[in-house]
């Protein structure tokens, strides 16, 4: 099983499922070595527990997965990436730190509660007793995430107060901008550098992610100059 676009599409499907259940449409996947070991959507209304965000639900599945296979939770988490449609809130960001998850990929920003830079930057803050800092990559499939949130806030929420996200259309980071620029200039480069990592092993994926932005930046400058 590969961590391919089908998985990332599944993410969107999970969020759509939440939407049809009257919950805030946030879907997420925990991917460990090409395998989805946790998935979740918001269950706040259902559980009457305001902390049942998609990430927390997915973490419970990860813990079950570890328990059944008798695997060390920390060792598994240290090689797991979270894909989530919306930037994790401050609480979930701290939870992911406490679990030592090294990478989080999200679609759009969460201006109301975001813990990866929007309200606070807990992901990279100096908190020596709150697990490990993690890397963030934002802007992945953000348009769809935004669209779903807009649909959610347009439709009547039967449970009154619901709190998770509010989005701005300005969500693309420089990372995504560079990717778009690259696609425009030289599609093969984009495919090989940005898309390929998703089909590869997670370890190489994270390795790529560390280097992709600078790599792409350099490449695009190089290409620009060659065109001129």
């Amino acid at each position: 099983m590969n961590c391919s676009f089908t998985d990332l599409e599944e993410n969107t499907l999970i969020a759509k499922d939440a939407l049809s259940n009257g919950e805030v449409p946030v879907g997420c996947l925990l991917v460990h070595q090409n395998q989805v070991i946790g998935r979740g959507r918001n269950q706040v209304n259902q559980s009457k527990n305001a902390t049942r965000h998609a990430e927390m639900v997915a973490v419970d599945q990860l813990l079950d997965w570890c328990r059944h296979r008798n695997r060390d939770v920390r060792a598994v988490c240290e090689r797991t990436a979270l894909y989530v449609t919306v930037e994790p809130c401050v609480m979930c960001t701290a939870a992911l730190r406490l679990l030592h998850v090294p990478v989080v990929v999200f679609g759009c920003r969460n201006e109301r509660f975001g813990g990866c830079g929007s309200v606070l930057d807990v992901a990279s803050a100096d908190l020596p007793r709150t697990g490990t800092k993690f890397k963030v990559c934002e802007g992945h499939r953000s348009d769809e995430a935004i669209q779903m949130l807009k649909t959610f806030y347009k439709q009547e929420n039967p449970n009154g107060d619901q709190t998770h996200t509010h989005t701005h259309t300005h969500t693309h980071t420089h990372c995504v901008h560079i990717c778009v620029l690259c696609t425009f200039l030289f599609p093969h480069l984009f495919i090989s550098l940005f898309l390929l990592p998703f089909f590869l092993h997670f370890d190489s994926f994270s390795l790529f992610f560390n280097r992709v932005p600078s790599f792409l930046c350099l490449s695009s400058f190089f290409l620009l100059f060659s065109f001129l």
Binding site: A50, C89, A94, A95, V122
Partner: peptide, 22 residues
């Protein structure tokens, strides 16, 4: 901690009393 404090924000807690800082 950050996680628990934000969980209390989400839960609309009225007041919080604690003994010692962390």
């Amino acid at each position: 901690c950050v996680m628990c404090a934000m969980a209390l924000v989400h839960s609309r807690i009225g007041r919080v009393f604690y003994g010692t800082t962390s």
